[in-house]
Design a binder for these strands. Structure first.
Length: 333
DNA sequence: CATCGATGTTGAG
DNA sequence: TCAACCTCGATGG
């Protein structure tokens, strides 16, 4: 569920709270026990995100790669220092942080101790993780039948002296070598927040205009561009007034460049605010409504059958590559 | 209470 | 193309 903006926010949280510290790594659930043992006690030296992938570097050339997939999420507990670049939800953005209206990616930076934040799939915070609650040591009874891996519990727990991060439900949570990390990076398309902007744009333009595949598919292809998911795809195509079925090579170059610039800006806003804000030019009242309800926040996403906000045409819904595609046949031609 | 579906990816066929 | 992965909020009875 989390698209690129969430993953960048998580990486910044790790950078702020874990980089430079020794980390106790465990797998309360058991399914990451081997990987946890490889990392336990090492110092984390770097956190970075590329698209929907997050990479945590540890001393000794070991990396933890995490992909949240459809419903993964991180819960932070204990002392949490909030990265200033993502803290604005409680400050400058003012009404975007209405209390109780959006727990989706709320960052609680008001309490130094036992504050808790959940970033990832939409999810309510679920109560505090007790810092004293260490993973229970298990004695070496050779004949013990180990219980099967538990579903619905913490796959990986990372703890410093003061901060705890719990991971649930990821698609990928694996320890990898630098070479393996490079291999993953190599097949990822450009991320506006990583690397050289000019180079990124040219890569994106070339990747799109080389293909006969529908632009609606290309935007979701992580080898073409990193971090865009089903929501941003639908919204970006609407904002560009572009028919999702247009083959990549038939999209005018300036429109392709426009898509890149739009993604750059939407991602920047998403990382800063923690919300997928894709509607602009709203009046004060419209804005308030958009912030208060997920259903009022998008141009087309999740609005099948409803009248287009711009032209009144019924928003269409179809399956594209087994994902739901929302678009306005009136505006997008 | 049970069932469904979701902001995603992989790998089998 | 489709099932599997794996979690939980929303929905319906």
């Amino acid at each position: 569920m989390p698209e690129g903006h969430s993953v960048h926010r998580i990486a910044r949280q790790f950078d702020r709270n874990f980089t430079g510290r020794s980390v106790a790594v465990s797998s309360p659930q058991g399914r990451f026990a081997d990987g946890a043992a490889l990392l336990d006690g090492r110092r984390m030296s770097r956190a970075m995100a590329v698209g929907k992938q997050m990479f945590l570097e540890f001393d000794g050339d070991r990396w933890l790669r995490v992909h949240l997939g459809l419903y993964g999420a991180w819960d932070f507990a204990g002392e949490i220092l909030v990265d200033p670049t993502i803290a604005s939800a409680n400050g400058r953005m003012g009404q975007t942080n209405q209390r109780g209206t959006d727990l989706e990616e709320a960052i609680h930076d008001d309490a130094g101790e036992n504050s808790l934040a959940s970033i990832g799939a939409p999810r309510k915070t679920r109560g505090h993780v007790r810092m004293s609650e260490q993973t229970k040591g298990v004695d070496d009874g050779a004949e013990l039948e180990w219980p099967p891996p538990v579903v619905g519990q913490v796959r990986a727990r990372l703890m410093t002296e003061v901060t705890c991060a719990d991971l649930r439900g990821p698609t990928a949570c694996v320890v990898e070598t630098p070479e393996q990390i490079d291999a993953v990076l190599d097949r990822l398309g450009p991320d506006p927040l990583v690397g050289d902007p000019r180079e990124n744009e040219e890569r994106f333009v070339a990747a799109v205009r080389r293909r006969g595949v529908a632009i609606g598919q290309l935007l979701m292809d992580q080898a073409v561009v990193s971090g865009i998911g089903n929501v941003y795809r639908a919204e970006m195509l609407f904002r560009a007034a572009l028919d999702p079925h247009t083959p990549g090579r038939r999209v005018p170059e300036d429109v392709v460049r426009g898509l890149w610039h739009d993604w750059t800006e939407l991602l920047r806003i998403g990382v800063e605010t923690g919300q997928m804000m894709t509607m602009d030019g709203l009046t004060g009242e419209e804005w308030r409504r958009a912030m208060a309800s997920r259903d009022d926040r998008h141009w087309v996403y999740h609005r099948a059958g409803l009248p287009c906000r711009r032209c009144g045409t019924e928003i269409a819904l179809e399956e594209m590559q087994a994902r739901k595609l929302y678009w306005c046949p009136g505006c997008q031609k």
